[in-house]
C-alpha cells in the first residue's frame, strides 16, 4: 500500500474539508497524547480526561470549517480544549482547590502515569513527584498556572501561547519564568543529589 504523504496541519485540514474525512485520524494521532495530558492536568480525572478529549476532537471536527488557517491549528485546538475543560469543571462543580487536597489520594492513581519501564523505586518517586507538581501547579496564580499548562502539558511553543493568549512574547516568557521559580521552591524535597 502506498504511504500517505505527510501533510502539515493546515494542508491536512484542507484535505479533510475537501471530503477526505479519514485524514482526521491523522490529526487525532498527532495531538491525542498532548491533549489528554493537558485536559487531565486541568480536570485531574483520568477517565474523564479521555472522554473529554474525545468530545473535543468531535467538536473540532464539526467546527473544522471555522478554523482560520492564518493561525496555528494547535492554538485553535488547545483553545477549544481549554474552554471545554473549564466548562466540564464548571458543570461538575469540581473545585480545583478541593482537587488539590485529593491529588495523590485518588484511587487508581498508580496506573495513570507512564513509568516508561523504570525501576519500582523510580516509578514510586515519579508518582510522588507527579502529585507534588499537580498540587504546586494548582497553587499557582491562575495566569501563571494557565501558561504552565499550555507550555509544559500542551507543549505549545512560546509563540503559540503568545498568539493564543494575545500576550506579548516577553510577557509569556517572563510569567513562565516566575511560575517555574515558584514551582522550584515547592519541589525542594524531590531534589536528588547529583
Amino acid at each position: 500500500m502506498a504511504e500517505r504523504e505527510q501533510l502539515d496541519d493546515r494542508a491536512l485540514v484542507a484535505r479533510i474539508l475537501e471530503g477526505d474525512r479519514d485524514r482526521f485520524t491523522e490529526l487525532v494521532r498527532r495531538y491525542e497524547k498532548r491533549l489528554v495530558n493537558y485536559v487531565y492536568r486541568i480536570t485531574h480525572r483520568y477517565e474523564e480526561a479521555h472522554d473529554l478529549a474525545q468530545e473535543i476532537f468531535v467538536k473540532v471536527y464539526l467546527a473544522l470549517d471555522r478554523y482560520d488557517p492564518k493561525y496555528q491549528f494547535s492554538t485553535w485546538l488547545f483553545r477549544i480544549a481549554q474552554n471545554a475543560s473549564i466548562d466540564a469543571l464548571r458543570k461538575k462543580s469540581i473545585s480545583e482547590v478541593s482537587m488539590a487536597r485529593t491529588v495523590g489520594d485518588e484511587e487508581g492513581k498508580e496506573r495513570e502515569f507512564a513509568d516508561g519501564g523504570v525501576s519500582p523505586y523510580r516509578a514510586m518517586k515519579n508518582k510522588q513527584l507527579s502529585a507534588a507538581i499537580d498540587r504546586a501547579v494548582i497553587e499557582l496564580p491562575p495566569d501563571y498556572r494557565e501558561l504552565i499548562q499550555l507550555r509544559h502539558f500542551a507543549e505549545l511553543s512560546y509563540e503559540e501561547i503568545a498568539t493564543m493568549k494575545k500576550l506579548p512574547l516577553g510577557t509569556v516568557k517572563n510569567k513562565l519564568f516566575r511560575a517555574r521559580n515558584l514551582l522550584k521552591d515547592v519541589l525542594g524535597e524531590f531534589v536528588e543529589p547529583l
Binding site: F24, T25, V28, E32, K33, L35, V36, N37, Y40, Y46, A49, H50, A53, Q54, F57, V58, Y61, R111, E112, F113, A114, N126, L129, S130, A132, I133, A136, I148, H152, F153, R180, L183, K184, L187, G188, F190, V191, E192
Partner: peptide, 20 residues
C-alpha cells in the same frame, strides 16, 4: 533542583488512544 522542576513538568500520563 532545576532538573526536579522540569522532570516533574515533563511527566506524562499514560494516555490511551482516542477512538473516534
Amino acid at each position: 533542583s532545576c532538573r526536579a522542576v522540569f522532570d516533574a513538568l515533563g511527566l506524562e500520563i499514560q494516555a490511551k488512544p482516542i477512538a473516534i
